[in-house]
């Protein structure tokens, strides 16, 4: 039972992070390998706002969320926009370089020590007993809930809102989208903003649950296989991919070897690349596109 709960929580973490990869990839065919760092930056922003707005945890969280949305958009406007028209690889390497830059800057500003935004916010994190003898921390439960809500919102946004439809249109055929008067830069900036926002929400909740360290980058990277297993251009896929990766990881850690933790997602990734490289729900043509 506890195993099941652990799987669900981990799957929620991976799914929430993975949707950031999917959003950016789907719209602009760029793989954002700085996602882990951006997500960590979001958590540090929460730490910063928590100490600025002491006593108003909700204000602090809201401000941190808005800031992270802006950070994502700014990353596009000031950096990734310059890479338009370059090779796909160049864009990916730029995100890697950005990740390194951010990691360095974050350590300079906030030091490498473990921090607890939960304490700064004054948020308590009691464990909740579930039927069946399993336990789940409040923040973890909140995380599962947040994942469900955010996925619901994203689906609705992409399906029903005009900007969501434009985002999908730009992802399918940027040329035609521009001909239809859609401002591609605005769309891409929005995708980067949303991606960073969702990633930051994941980062904030994780850091509220278990503290904030450099390992968060690794969590971000481990969520990438979830996105790819589901299909890099499919949100539904990211959900299923996260579930598969999380289930594999938790059960192998439990039954085989705890050291496997960091490698299992990538093993799943390799298996998927061998049997069905475009992912469970991805479109097959994606392979030839890059």
């Amino acid at each position: 039972m506890q195993l099941g709960v652990n799987i669900i929580v981990l799957a929620a973490i991976y799914a929430l992070i993975a949707c950031g990869y999917v959003l950016i990839y789907r719209v602009s065919r760029v793989l954002n390998l700085a996602h882990g760092e951006l997500m960590m930056l979001g958590s540090y922003l929460l730490l910063a706002t928590a100490s600025t707005f002491t006593g108003h945890p909700l204000v602090a969280i809201a401000v941190a969320l808005v800031l992270s949305l802006c950070v994502g958009a700014l990353v596009y406007l000031f950096l990734m926009r310059k890479m338009a028209g370059e090779m796909v690889l160049a864009a990916v390497l730029t995100t890697i370089a950005l990740g390194i830059l951010l990691r360095g800057v974050m350590v300079i500003v906030w030091s490498a020590q473990q921090q607890y935004p939960g304490q700064a916010l004054g948020v308590v994190n009691p464990a909740i007993a579930l039927p069946g003898g399993a336990r789940i921390s409040t923040m973890a439960a909140l995380l599962v809930l947040a994942t469900a809500v955010i996925y619901g919102a994203l689906f609705a946004f992409l399906r029903f809102s005009r900007w969501g439809v434009r985002m999908r249109a730009a992802g399918q055929n940027p040329l035609l989208a521009a001909q239809r008067g859609i401002n591609l830069h605005a769309i891409y900036a929005l995708a980067w903003g949303l991606s960073t926002l969702t990633g930051s929400i994941a980062g904030m909740l994780i850091s509220l649950d278990s503290g904030l360290t450099g390992t968060m980058v690794l969590i971000g990277l481990k969520a990438f296989p979830a996105a790819l297993v589901g299909g890099l251009d499919s949100l539904v896929g990211a959900l299923f991919g996260a579930l598969i990766v999380a289930a594999a990881e938790i059960s192998l850690i439990h039954y085989v070897d705890p050291l496997l933790s960091d490698v299992v997602p990538f093993l799943v990734l390799i298996v998927m690349l061998i049997i069905r490289p475009w992912g469970l729900f991805g479109t097959r043509e994606e392979l030839d596109r890059v």
């Binding site: 005009r162 439809v165 434009r166 999908r168 249109a169 239809r180 008067g181 859609i182 401002n183």
Partner: peptide, 9 residues
Amino acid sequence: ENLAAPVAH
């Protein structure tokens, strides 16, 4: 959706 996507300035 194709008809919803274009921007009408």
